[in-house]
Measured scan of single mutants.
Amino acid sequence: TYTWNTKEEAKQAFKELLKEKRVPSNASWEQAMKMIINDPRYSALAKLSEKKQAFNAYKVQTE
């Protein structure tokens, strides 16, 4: 089980997950979700809006 003390740690864990699963920077949210949804870190960020925000930040960083 994973635990995160801060929102920032949770966001980092979520981005690490995207990186580890090699989600391409041109992937849509739907494509990315299919690649990461079974990992416990997918739940790091509770709100869908937070997940999408972190995903978009990840995409910008990896382009």
Rank of each mutant, 00 (worst) to 15 (best):
T62I: 13
W4F: 08
S49V: 06
A57N: 13
Y2F: 14
A27E: 03
E9W: 03
L48M: 10
K7I: 12
N5Y: 11
K34N: 12
N56Q: 13
Q61P: 05
K47R: 09
A27H: 05
S25Y: 12
T1P: 15
K59R: 10
I36Q: 00
E9M: 04
L17M: 12
A54R: 01
S28H: 08
S43V: 10
Q31V: 11
A44H: 04
Y2H: 15
E50K: 03
Y42V: 02
L48G: 05
A44D: 02
E16A: 14
T62M: 14
L17T: 01
A54N: 03
A13D: 06
A32K: 00
S43M: 12
A54I: 12
S28C: 08
A27R: 03
T6M: 05
Y58Q: 02
M33A: 09
E8G: 10
M35I: 09
S25D: 06
Y2P: 15
E50T: 03
K34I: 12
L48N: 08
A32Y: 01
F14K: 00
K7G: 07
S43A: 12
Q31N: 10
A10G: 07
Y42D: 01
S43E: 14
A13P: 01
E16F: 05
S49Q: 07
A32I: 04
Y2C: 14
L17K: 00
T3A: 09
E20C: 05
K52F: 06
L48S: 06
R22T: 05
K34C: 12
T6K: 03
Q12G: 09
L18T: 01
A13E: 04
I36R: 00
N56A: 13
K15L: 15
D39C: 03
A46C: 10
N26E: 09
A32V: 07
R41Y: 01
D39W: 00
K15Y: 15
K19Y: 13
K7P: 15
Q61W: 10
F14D: 00
N56I: 12
R41Q: 01
A13C: 09
A44K: 03
E20S: 06
E16W: 04
L17V: 05
L18A: 00
F14V: 00
Q53F: 06
P24A: 06
Q12D: 11
P40C: 08
I37H: 14
K34L: 08
Q53P: 02
M33K: 14
Q53D: 13
R22E: 13
K7S: 07
M33N: 06
L45Y: 03
P24L: 02
E9C: 06
K47T: 13
V23Y: 02
I37E: 12
R22Q: 12
W29A: 00
S25E: 07
N56M: 11
V60T: 13
K47P: 08
M35Q: 07
K59G: 04
I36K: 00
A57R: 11
S49N: 11
I36C: 07
E30Y: 08
K34E: 13
K19E: 14
E63K: 08
T62K: 08
L45F: 04
L48C: 09
E20T: 04
K21W: 05
A54Y: 05
W4T: 07
W29V: 02
T3E: 14
T1A: 14
N56T: 08
M33T: 06
I37V: 08
T6L: 05
W29E: 00
K51C: 05
N26P: 03
A44F: 04
P24K: 04
F14P: 00
W4Q: 08
A44G: 04
L17I: 03
Q31G: 06
T6A: 04
S28D: 09
S25R: 13
A44V: 05
L48D: 13
Q31F: 10
T3H: 13
P24E: 05
E16L: 07
E50V: 03
W4G: 08
T6G: 06
Y58R: 00
P40S: 05
R22W: 06
N26W: 14
L18M: 05
F55N: 01
V23L: 04
A13Y: 05
F55V: 03
Y2D: 14
S43L: 15
S25N: 10
N26S: 11
T3W: 10
F14N: 00
P24W: 02
E63M: 10
Q53E: 14
D39K: 00
P24Q: 05
T3Q: 14
F55M: 03
S49T: 07
R41I: 03
L48R: 06
A32L: 02
E9I: 04
T1W: 09
D39Y: 01
S28I: 06
K19P: 00
A32D: 00
